[in-house]
Structures are given as C-alpha cells and as structure tokens.
Design a binder for these strands. Structure first.
Length: 201
DNA sequence: TCCCCGATTAACT
DNA sequence: GTTAATCGGGGAG
C-alpha cells in the first residue's frame, strides 16, 4: 500500500462536511514534533457536523468554545469533553459556516513508541481507536485549537490513500442524543482500527 | 452565581 | 451492560 505524502490543501476542506468526512478516510493525520519526529495515523472513522444539525456544537451559533468551527476550512477545532478528554475536528466549508469533521479513529503508522507512551498502553489497538484516544496518542492539548492543518508545521493531513464505496459504511453517529438518525458517521468496514464496528445502520 | 450534563473511556458486574 | 471519573460551557434564574 503506497501512501502519498502530498499535503491536503485548502480546497480539500472547503467542501460540505459530509463530503469531506467521507473523503478523509484513508488520508493520513501527521503531527511533526519540534525535534522533527513524526506521529502519523491513517484515518478510518469520521463524523460530519454542520450548523443546521442539532447535535453540532455550532448549532446555537459562535461562542468562545466553538470559535474555531467558524474559521476557514482546514482549521483544527479541539475541545474538551467529560472533563477529562479531548476531541479533534477539521473545519470544513465556507468561513462562518460552522461545519467540521470529527476524527474518531486512526490506524497507527508512525511514532508508535510515542503513542504507547502517551497512551500508557502497549496494545496498538488501544492507541487511536476512539476520538479521545487518538488525541491522547498524538499528545494534543487545548492549545492546538485553531492550528491551521494547511499551513502550520505542527499538524497536517496527507493525501495517503482512498477507499472505494464498497469498503465504506455510512452509519449513525456515536454518543449523541439529538439528530441520532442522520447517517453522518463514515467507517472503513474492514478496518481493525475503528472505535465501534459499523453494526448500527 | 449556580447547576446540569456532554461528539468518552476504562473498569467494573 | 453499567457506572464512576472529573471539568468547563452555557442556559436558567
């Protein structure tokens, strides 16, 4: 499997969130640390959130917490949840649109020993198979909110590979209480690295 | 100001 | 399958 290291540009993210969420499967999230070491993982599970969606943080308009969601496409939106976890999103669409894609699971590719240390686990299956797990594996903090995935050195998304439609399932999203029927979670069906097998719709 | 609860995880039974 | 852990945002008053 040859993975392209071409960095995804602004135009990739400046599309509707469901389209970007689907197209992000197979792409590679990369963190380049100050000593140039890389942490990388291939995206195998995403969820799309738009402002007209009652389950989205942007639904009630801009606030201090969700400000990143209203920035330009390719901006990183990092938020804390349950008082102890972080989740990360790539902002999509037009400036001010308030849409983004939640990264829910990755297949670890590079920097596995760093992931193991950050996670406090030895089993690679526990590194990035969940939205808060992958943030911990990559060593994210809330100060990474508003990073530009297109221009900044610290985080980027590379072209990697793509999956054909038969390899992808669109299912209901995980952990939300409203708009539960919208099929806006995208999963690589055969992947061993997803957070939740695609059993629900 | 107070209070409730979440785009979760891990350790239980 | 159930539940504790643990924090800040934001709606209610």
């Amino acid at each position: 499997m040859k993975l392209s290291r071409r960095r995804l540009g602004r135009a990739f993210f400046a599309r509707p969130a469901p389209e970007v969420a689907r197209d992000l499967l197979g792409r590679v999230l990369v963190r380049t640390m100050e000593d140039r070491r890389r942490i990388a993982g291939r995206i195998v599970e995403t969820e799309a959130y738009t402002q007209d969606d009652a389950a989205s943080h942007s639904h009630r308009g801009p606030t201090a917490r969700n400000a990143a969601m209203f920035e330009q496409a390719g901006t990183l939106y990092v938020y804390s949840i349950y008082g102890m976890h972080l989740c990360m999103n790539a902002v999509t669409g037009e400036v001010g649109e308030g849409s983004a894609v939640l990264l829910r699971a990755l297949e670890p590719l590079e920097g596995l020993e760093i992931m193991a240390r950050n996670r406090g686990k030895a089993d690679p299956r526990l590194f990035c198979s969940g939205p808060a797990r992958l943030c911990q594996a990559f060593g994210l903090t809330t100060s990474d909110d508003l990073v530009d995935l297109v221009r900044d050195d610290s985080f980027s998304i590379e072209a990697g590979s793509t999956f054909d439609d038969p390899d992808v399932a669109a299912t209901r999203r995980i952990g939300i209480r409203t708009a539960v029927d919208l099929p806006r979670r995208y999963v690589v069906v055969s992947s061993e690295w997803v957070s939740h097998p695609p059993v629900n719709r």
